[in-house]
Design a protein around this nucleic acid. Structure first.
Length: 175
DNA sequence: GACAGATGAAGGA
DNA sequence: TCCTTCATCTGTC
């Protein structure tokens, strides 16, 4: 069953992000120039087909998303996040993302530390997989998760973005 | 059930 | 140090 997602752009000085909302909250966030990595036929700008009540709700979430994104891109902690829709994701992935949400701006954790925090200290590779499956990068700060010894590791939006986001928060990397 | 993966640790040069 | 190898765990097909 395909979810009906409302797609809205967020213009920032770093480019135009694309946010997609379900009836439960923010479901996906794409980086600028992400080349529509998710097919696109399941999400569409179809605001006129939705009830005005739902539209108002989504506009409210969109303001929260925009504020949070702008704060993060300014190297600050977002004041408030919109509700996140993790429907269809596994418990393990949701646990990992919840742990990432606890990492404050300017701080980092390693994949191993996240694995420990979710009670599976040996599942470090699985944590990497969950990071890659994160549909809401930046807001769920997977860029604050580094490999051991402060090495960069990887990033679904591209390592340039990861470096940039970490630099904004004043985090120094090895290499 | 096999395979891949955004890791981490250990061992050798 | 740097490189290689392997153990480990989870998600996906």
């Amino acid at each position: 069953m395909k979810r009906h997602l409302i797609e809205l752009p967020i213009s920032t000085r770093d480019g135009q992000f694309i946010a997609r909302y379900s009836e439960k909250g923010l479901a996906e966030l794409d980086f600028p120039n992400a080349n529509c990595r998710r097919r696109g036929n399941e999400s569409q700008i179809a605001a006129n087909r939705d009830s005005s009540r739902r539209l108002l709700q989504i506009q409210k979430w969109h303001r929260l998303t925009t504020d949070a994104l702008e704060n993060i891109l300014a190297g600050k902690e977002p004041k408030k996040l919109p509700p996140l829709d993790w429907t269809g994701k596994t418990d393990f992935q949701k646990s990992v993302w919840r742990q990432m949400l606890k990492i404050p701006a300017g701080k980092t954790k390693s994949y191993g530390e996240i694995a420990q925090a979710v009670g599976k200290p040996k599942a470090v590779r699985a944590v990497g997989g969950a990071c890659g499956a994160n549909p809401v990068p930046v807001l769920v700060p997977c860029h604050r998760v580094l490999a051991a010894n402060k090495k960069l590791g990887g990033f679904s939006g591209g390592l340039d973005w990861k470096r940039k986001l970490l630099a904004l928060e004043g985090i120094k990397l090895l290499l």
